[in-house]
Nucleic acid binder design. Structure first.
Length: 456
DNA sequence: TGGCAATACTG
DNA sequence: CAGTAT
DNA sequence: GCCA
């Protein structure tokens, strides 16, 4: 499973017969056009290199359902209740019907007589005030509004019932006031976030940050970029500075509760956190600078050492323009906008943070598991060793001063954290190139790639 | 959110 | 014919 | 893709 064996080119498949279509001679008395439409979608899915066979089958089922109809489909309501036809196909059929209707009305306008007599197929004519046409309009509006991220079927229905029928309508204050702040933001940046980010975009952003923050800040592109991915959805940046040195201890005291003893919850240190939020370089320097220089456009969430939000792509250095120009561009929502995150990391934790922020998820989970098996703990701040309580006479020279009052059973001490190499070494692994940090590697490392076939 | 079908090929 | 790959 |  998991598409490990997919063949990029079907022409290489050795024993593939000419594509067998269950319905090679498909005719429908009343809905030929719609059957053709669905056949086209089915074929499209089949062509894709990573085709989903269940999806293909679903189209086949839908085609079958339509074929069995003994009356023409006029709108989605004729078809939505049919087994095997769900929301997406209903919407596609509606779209098709609407287009067909528009086409026919224009040809009617050109010459009523001609279209009346030359059309060999039954012509679908709908009065603009007919119930069926209203239904098509409503469904079309539901689809359009539902295409805004964060607006689902429920909100879409509310909006349509309130008289909102298009994205343009939605942007008027009357309707945009019905949106949550998140929905409003997704509307504002519609068409931006779906757009892929390429490596050059990310490099431009990094260059812009470097120019804006000054030489003492060390800036690294992490996430998908560092794993060598060509196109991705979000830019992740790691920032460090010699003045930012705070390395928090793991908050969960014991790593493996051999016996589920009383769970110790220490909520001390709150005041500290508030204090740090104010003095943190992220809040005092990085974010204000990036904002003033016209990069940051929106803040989605802002935590202690990390920020996530929306930026305006600055483009290559030659096209950065003036600060004023960029600021006004952001104000007018001009330019290209993408999601970005910034993580402020102490230099001491550079290696573990790099590992943590580069990912991917599976790889990083694997590291955590390996650490656990060694009785250690891996997080973005470091690889930690657990030192059992020093009731015995072995107070290690690590850094017991930072043990705080976590528990009486022992304390965490930082084993390795400054470079990826030393962390790999400590975990007993060879260095893994960032481009190899993915599920395939993790699973391949565990056991040689075997087929699932095994006899018994 | 995750399970899902049909069939040609293999031995 | 059943298991498997697609 | 659909559906429970």
């Amino acid at each position: 499973m998991l598409g490990r064996y997919f063949q990029p080119n079907r022409c290489n498949a050795p024993r593939l017969r000419p594509v067998v279509r269950p319905y090679s001679t498909i005719t429908s008395k009343h809905n030929q056009k719609i059957v053709d439409l669905l056949l086209k979608y089915k074929a499209e899915e089949e062509q894709k290199p990573d085709a989903n066979s269940f999806k293909v089958y679903s189209f086949a089922r839908a085609i079958h359902a339509v074929m069995n109809l003994n009356h023409p489909i006029r709108s989605g309501t004729d078809v939505v209740a049919l087994p095997g036809i769900g929301l997406k196909i209903t919407n596609r059929i509606n779209e098709h019907l609407f287009d067909q209707y528009a086409q026919e009305t224009t040809s009617e306008a050109k010459g009523a007589a001609r279209s009346r007599f030359s059309g060999s197929k039954p012509v679908l004519i709908l009065a603009p005030d007919s119930k069926v046409y209203q239904e098509l309009l409503r469904n079309r509006a539901l689809v359009v509004l539902g295409s805004v991220p964060g607006i689902g079927p429920t909100t879409a229905k509310k909006l349509v019932d309130a008289g909102c029928h298009s994205i343009k309508d939605l942007k008027s204050p009357e309707f945009s006031s019905m949106l949550t702040s998140k929905q409003a933001m997704n509307l504002k940046y519609m068409g931006h976030f779906e757009q892929p980010i390429n490596r050059q975009d990310a490099e431009d952003v990094m260059a812009f940050c470097r120019a804006g923050l000054g030489p003492e800040f060390e800036i690294t592109l992490v996430g998908d970029y560092r794993r060598g991915i060509e196109m991705f959805q979000e830019i992740h940046v790691m920032v460090s500075h010699p003045d930012f040195v705070h390395v928090p201890l793991p908050s969960d005291p014991p790593h493996i509760p051999a016996k589920s003893k009383t769970i110790i919850k220490k909520k001390s240190g709150r005041r500290r956190k508030d204090e740090e939020v104010r003095t943190n370089l992220l809040h005092t320097d990085i974010l204000p600078l990036l904002q003033q220089r016209g990069l940051i456009s929106e803040t989605l969430s802002c935590g202690f050492t990390s920020w996530q939000g929306v930026i305006r792509l600055p483009g290559p250095e030659a096209g950065w323009g003036s600060r004023i120009h960029r600021i006004s561009a952001v104000e007018n929502n001009d330019g290209e906008y993408r999601k970005m995150s910034v993580h402020l990391v102490p230099q001491k934790s550079l290696g573990s943070a790099l590992l943590f922020l580069t990912g991917d998820n599976e790889f990083h989970k694997d590291l955590s598991t390996r650490a656990q098996k060694l009785g250690m703990l891996f997080n973005q701040h470091g690889l930690w060793s657990w030192n059992p309580s020093q009731t015995e006479s072995s107070p290690p020279n690590a850094e017991p001063r930072s043990s705080v009052e976590t528990t009486n059973d022992g304390y965490w001490s930082l084993a390795k954290s400054t470079s990826e190499e030393e962390i790999f070494q400590e975990l007993g692994m060879d260095f893994v190139d960032p481009t190899k940090r993915n599920f395939a590697f993790v699973s391949g490392k565990r056991r040689g790639k075997r087929t699932s076939s095994s006899y018994h």
